[in-house]
Design a protein around this nucleic acid. Sequence first.
DNA 1: TTTATTAATAGTAATAATTATTATTATCAA
DNA 2: TTGATAATAATAATTATTACTATTAATAAA
Lengths: 133, 133
Amino acid sequence: MERANWSRRTRQREMILREIKKLRTHPSAADIYEIVRKKLPRISLGTVYRNLEDLSRAGIIRKIRDGGTRARYDGTAAGHYHLHCQRCGRLVDLEKDPSPPVRVGPGKMDGWEITGYRLEFTGICPSCLKKKV
Amino acid sequence: MERANWSRRTRQREMILREIKKLRTHPSAADIYEIVRKKLPRISLGTVYRNLEDLSRAGIIRKIRDGGTRARYDGTAAGHYHLHCQRCGRLVDLEKDPSPPVRVGPGKMDGWEITGYRLEFTGICPSCLKKKV
DNA sequence: TTTATTAATAGTAATAATTATTATTATCAA
DNA sequence: TTGATAATAATAATTATTACTATTAATAAA
């Protein structure tokens, strides 16, 4: 991990990384674009997409996809738990970890190099539970 | 689960469900469309999308999203483990379960009704490991 | 069985997210 | 400072998905 073969450091990439690290939410590329634009008004949406992709391929951030159409990103690459609603697609972090926690040491599995994990519980979120079916 | 409030059963939906249950892969909507089309040549892609969405919302199949743009579906709703490559987005089933297995009984968690889980390990797949970076 | 109701579909158009393209800019080594 | 070129900005193109609407066919009732 932290493998980064960028040959130049740019203000755009640094700012994207800094801002996504601050957030505890799961912003989309468009969300990041809006945030970073306040500091770098001339930044391009394509730049945001490319850097988010590069950062997640390098294992520095995490790309996640919920039920919806758009990808979301997570500034913390370390594994943690999510709850994913199968009705509305809502995706939230689980407050406290269930026990026993999953233990994933770095290492190989089926020939893969494992860098992390994501335990996602699927179910119906409170607001969907309220709605009549 | 198995909550299905369809008022009519159609050949299209039955065929979509039958075909996806047969597969051990993670087909996209377009994949299913091509398969079902051999039996029902006049089926529409929109019908495939709608039914896959309905089936997954009912908890009968599972909608999954890997790194790529397109959604994939999994005919087995029961929880199992995936390996997800952070470089190329490849998504495969893990051959044998790691221990200890995750225990998820039906029940509530943070106000959610939990119906299943998915433990996804992220890492680098064998073919990406071979490639020079 | 025939008929009426309308859920569900087929076919197509529209939308939205993402990726590709290309001229320009700015990082970094010399 | 200067030159090479990685990375960007701006925009076009693509692709997956969703929306729309006339038509079809599944079900209930006559």
